[in-house]
Design a protein around this nucleic acid. Structure first.
Lengths: 180, 180
DNA sequence: CCTCAATTTACACACTTGTGTATCTTTTGA
DNA sequence: TCAAAAGATACACAAGTGTGTAAATTGAGG
């Protein structure tokens, strides 16, 4: 991703990300080409490559944006992390199902694995509900344990069509994590 | 994947998977082309497409083979699942680091999420160490919780260079999972 | 309002991909 | 042992990819 703040560049990037999301509603991600994206936007193909390195790069920038919003909510909300997560999932239902339809939900996990430890390193571990330590293992492992568990439960929830009541899943997850 | 058992086809498939693994030792996965793979094998490009649909399809078949071995060990070994998993990781160190180098470790998680529930459905849930239920949530969620947690801890272990003693991680994981 | 740097456009080029078709070779099984 | 089924080879072709270059356009600051 080229992160220029130039207004023309910002406009192009916005058009391109919008076009990809729009196309993903009708087509499998794997069948969308850079050519189709620029056709949708009316931009020149070269302009695409001025701003992104590939189609995957566009999706990555969309996901980075989405996760950044989530992380802001996580650090600012008075609610616990699980509440914030399930709010986030509820707000992003269509995006989540779009990702799931294309087997791309794992991208959120990869991004969370990068972002969450960064937040945690700037917090007092003893106050962090994601970090009740056992033994002398590095706290990174406990964070990984929690992120993996929570994400995979959400993955299962999306996989089942996001119809199971989130409150129940949230409550059970809370119960599990409390015991650790 | 074309799953013909014809000896010529089997030979071609073996050459192709071997070639991909060999190339991955020297090149990033994303930079490997189908052209390079067939060049490495000496096969015709068309032969590649007779046996696989794409480069990703080749990797998928390698991973399916690897996971099948693991699942066999899991169902047959007298040891608990965590012991089997850490044996598996130890035996496949080079493959794991190859996947990690290319940000592809998540493929194992996706495959496990398909394969493990299938095993579990043919077992008595009450005897299954991955399935101590709480509340009235579908057991699938608990399986998802455990797979996600374990996989992400292993992911972190690989990420840190597979140098932390596996026994310690295994013991801590066992401790966590026992409490649930 | 004008200038200059950044961006977009409009091409061109070499390269990879996936598919199709005809022919030769290998394997199967009656 | 030999016919036919399946696979490999050797091409060809349309389409997409990523990069390069020069000219036109945009917009932010003096």
């Amino acid at each position: 991703m080229n992160d220029s703040q130039n207004p023309s560049a910002l406009r192009s990037k916005k058009h391109i990300t919008d076009a990809l999301l729009k196309l993903m509603e009708d087509l499998p991600y794997s069948e969308i080409s850079v050519k189709q994206i620029v056709l949708e936007t009316g931009l020149e193909r070269k302009t695409f490559y001025n701003n992104f390195t590939s189609k995957d790069d566009v999706l990555d920038s969309i996901i980075t944006g989405t996760i950044t919003d989530y992380v802001l909510a996580l650090t600012r909300s008075p609610e616990g992390p699980l509440t914030v997560i399930f709010d986030f999932c509820d707000k992003n239902r269509t995006f989540l199902s779009l990702l799931h339809k294309n087997n791309l939900l794992y991208l959120l996990l990869l991004k969370l694995n990068i972002v969450i430890p960064e937040i945690n390193s700037s917090m007092d571990i003893s106050e962090n509900p994601f970090c009740k330590l056992i033994g002398n293992l590095d706290p990174d492992y406990l964070i990984a344990f929690n992120i993996g568990a929570i994400w995979n439960v959400i993955f299962k929830w999306v996989d089942r069509g996001m119809t199971d009541p989130p409150e129940e899943i949230k409550a059970t997850l809370e119960e599990y994590l409390k015991r650790i």
